[in-house]
């Protein structure tokens, strides 16, 4: 379980200081998929960076299963919007990058072996096994993002952080990737914190959709999505889906009009 309590993050000091996040509160239970939506600049990426341990909060507490988060760790995997595969490594080496680091520090024997096998299994599952020796530049955008997801899952993290991972993909690939993500989550019970601009995507993927407000960034609404799983293409057409989508959009527009002074 991920808990954020009154998390604030200020960039810079003095008159130029930017409060990217203020008193952000959020709880993500184990196995849950929570989507963060909000207008540009409301601190979504900042929040993910804090959870990932890439930055430290100015104040507040971040706990993962009760343990304070201070630095990056194998318990969190992250997928970025832009291409972040290492271009000089093959798909398989990219996916095993995290494992290879731990190997040089301490050999875990059987556990390491199982994790490597897990990598190959994941590659197989997302259809990248035939491309395991290809370099990222040889893959399509969708394949590259699939490889990024596999890389993030390779160390069996407790939570998967995704920052607009499908934002740069075309509509069709995007839909494919959403279904794939849901399939993987269902299989491995992965907890996911997913940032997106796309309300439809958020409602389709999430168990909950959290709406954020800018200046200063914080969560203002938390909409539950009680739509049964597995979800498929037709889910989007259901009146229930549309109703929730409408609800989230209402919160979003409301958050934008009530800009704080």
């Amino acid at each position: 379980m991920l808990e954020a309590v009154n998390v604030s993050r200020v960039y810079g000091t003095g008159p130029d200081a930017v409060t990217a996040l203020e008193h952000m509160r959020l709880t993500v239970r184990s196995g849950e998929i929570v989507c963060l939506v909000g207008s540009s600049g409301c601190g979504k990426s900042t929040f993910l960076s804090l959870v990932a341990g890439l930055e430290t909060p100015t104040s507040g507490r971040l706990l993962l299963d009760g343990v304070p988060l201070v630095e990056p760790g194998a318990d969190r995997g992250m997928v970025f919007q832009s291409d972040s595969l290492f271009p000089w490594l093959s798909v398989r080496d990219n996916v095993q990058f995290g494992l290879s680091l731990h190997e040089t520090r301490r050999t875990h024997g059987g556990l390491m072996g199982r994790l490597y096998a897990h990598c190959d299994e994941l590659l197989e599952q997302v259809g990248l096994w035939p491309f395991r020796d290809a370099y990222p530049a040889q893959l399509s955008g969708g394949m590259r993002q699939r490889a990024s997801i596999v890389r993030a899952l390779a160390t069996r993290p407790a939570i998967l952080l995704m920052d607009e991972p499908f934002g740069a993909l075309d509509a069709q690939t995007r839909e494919e990737m959403q279904l794939l993500l849901l399939k993987l989550c269902a299989e491995y019970g992965t907890t996911v914190l997913f940032v997106t601009h796309d309300v439809e995507e958020a409602v389709f993927l999430g168990d909950r959709v959290v709406v954020m407000r800018p200046r200063p960034g914080r969560a203002v609404a938390d909409v539950a999505v009680p739509i049964a799983r597995p979800r498929d293409r037709r889910t989007r057409l259901s009146p229930e889906f549309q109703a929730i989508r409408g609800q989230v959009l209402d919160h979003l527009y409301e958050s934008m009009s009530t800009d704080s002074p």
Binding site: P72, F80, S84, L85, F86, G98, L101, T155
Partner: peptide, 18 residues
């Protein structure tokens, strides 16, 4: 070298030397 690659490596657990 793109900052994204460095951030990705950090998230995967690489230390400064790695």
């Amino acid at each position: 070298v793109q900052p994204e690659l460095i951030r990705a490596a950090m998230v995967l657990g690489a230390d400064s030397r790695e």
